[in-house]
């Protein structure tokens, strides 16, 4: 692609085409394909805004407690594996890229490219969840899940947790500070859990899309569904970019 910003009309037919000859995917209450595409695109954006406000409540809680219990948050953050976190960020960014490529393939009507991109996105999404599962199971092993026999020993006595201790040489936390690491992990599980839930929903839809794309859908010029799903997928990516910065990288030095 020498020129990466080609401007082509989105619809397969000129605007203002007669009512009788509209394509099958044009719903009855719309006047034109553009109107329909615009509408669903804008609706998707509004939906993403509600998603943003949904996470907004969690971010607010996070910022308050981080300010209150900074030391506990640092200690809690040291429990997260920055390698896994970085890897997951890379995986998610790549999946965002393949998704964007998928949208481009759909727009330029490349069926096999579209299917390939969707499958790659699907695999990367699963990879992200796989890594997340590894991380979660580490937390479960150490009893760092709030509400389920939450265990403070990694914070009261860091040496009992040699892997982490080797890296950060954390000082033992007093009990009253160590107790607040539970809030950190509550927020960690809430935020990443909500994020993972969105991923799972996204992967489900991706599976459906792969199935349909193999049957030849989305390359007729009517790419609204792919585009909107792309928006959703990128939004999840953005959320993760912030989660990574806030949860993993509090204080690593």
């Amino acid at each position: 692609m020498p020129n990466n910003q080609a401007i082509v009309p989105a619809a397969s037919e000129p605007a203002g085409a007669g009512h009788n000859e509209h394509p099958s995917y044009l719903l009855h209450h719309f006047q034109s394909v553009e109107q329909q595409a615009d509408t669903s695109n804008f609706a998707m954006w509004l939906f993403l805004l509600t998603e943003m406000m949904f996470f907004g409540g969690l971010f607010t809680a996070y910022l308050i407690y981080r300010n209150w219990y900074y030391l506990a948050f640092v200690a809690g953050s040291h429990q997260l594996n920055v390698v896994w976190g970085t890897l997951n960020t890379v995986v998610l960014i790549c999946s965002s890229f393949t998704m964007a490529m998928g949208v481009w393939c759909a727009e330029t009507r490349r069926r096999s490219g579209l299917v390939l991109c969707l499958i790659l996105t699907f695999i990367l999404g699963l990879g992200f969840l796989g890594i997340k599962t590894i991380e979660y199971s580490e937390k479960i092993e150490k009893h760092h899940v709030p509400g389920f026999h939450y265990n403070l020993s990694s914070f009261l006595d860091p040496a009992s947790d040699p892997e982490i201790f080797k890296e950060y040489h954390d000082k033992p936390l007093p009990l009253d500070i160590a107790r607040h690491t539970e809030l950190y992990f509550s927020l960690y599980f809430l935020m990443t859990g909500m994020h993972a839930l969105h991923m799972i929903i996204g992967i489900g839809i991706l599976g459906f899309m792969i199935f349909r794309a193999r049957a030849g859908a989305y390359i007729s010029g009517h790419v609204t569904f792919v585009e909107n799903f792309g928006l959703y997928w990128h939004f999840i990516d953005i959320v993760w970019i912030y989660l990574f910065a806030l949860l993993y990288l509090i204080s690593r030095h």
Binding site: M53, F54, G147
Partner: peptide, 30 residues
Amino acid sequence: VLATPVIAISMVLIMLERVIGIGLFDPTKG
């Protein structure tokens, strides 16, 4: 569009607080 999601999340937090005790609204947990 912009306000309702916030009550959605606060209701989720109420439910989780009751079920597993995440502690965000619990003064004894900070």
